[in-house]
């Protein structure tokens, strides 16, 4: 009996994992990844406010950095084939088709973001404002910029 419940839990979990990949239409996938990107944006906004306006604390920076650590390597999974700007039946979005032409480079950029986020969290844990701002200075260009410069189309 216990085994049965356990099995059902695993089955339910497996379905929960598999369902988004299977049942989502390209447009749902795009909406979901935009929402995920906004989570990253909120973390990055908190970091920007700390660097520029001295708002928030090093503990907040640890939290923001951890959000990025957690999401960075997921990014390539938010971009299944067929969800680019220009794919048939897909709403206008800002994902350039180059993502799929150069998916290795795209994935490497996500890995670079993770490395930047790791370094940022380490700096935030030190509590030293100078170290945090120094880490933030490369997090933008080398982390976010690694994808946004080559792979995101401008706002229209």
């Amino acid at each position: 009996m216990r085994k049965g419940v356990f099995g059902a839990v695993i089955a339910a979990a497996a379905i929960a994992i598999a369902v988004p990949a299977v049942a989502q239409s390209p447009n749902d996938t795009i909406a979901a990844r935009v929402a995920k990107m906004k989570e990253l944006g909120a973390a990055s906004g908190a970091i920007t406010a700390y660097v520029r306006e001295n708002k928030g604390t090093p503990a907040d920076m640890v939290k923001a950095g951890e959000t990025m650590q957690g999401l960075a390597l997921q990014i390539p999974t938010w971009f299944p084939k067929g969800t680019g700007d220009g794919d048939p039946g897909v709403t206008k979005n800002r994902a350039k088709m180059d993502i799929w032409a150069k998916f290795d480079d795209f994935s490497k950029a996500a890995t670079a973001l993770r490395a930047e986020a790791d370094a940022f969290v380490a700096a935030a844990r030190s509590g030293d404002r100078e170290k945090i701002t120094a880490a933030a200075a490369t997090l933008g260009p080398k982390g976010c910029g690694g994808c946004h410069t080559p792979f995101r189309a401008p706002q229209s």
């Binding site: 944006g41 909120a42 906004g45 910029g145 946004h148 080559p150 995101r152 189309a153 401008p154």
Partner: peptide, 18 residues
Amino acid sequence: DGGNPDGDYVGGSMGEVV
């Protein structure tokens, strides 16, 4: 650093400028 005040990050040509 390329960050917009709202937390977004400039991309495209402006990313290159930064």
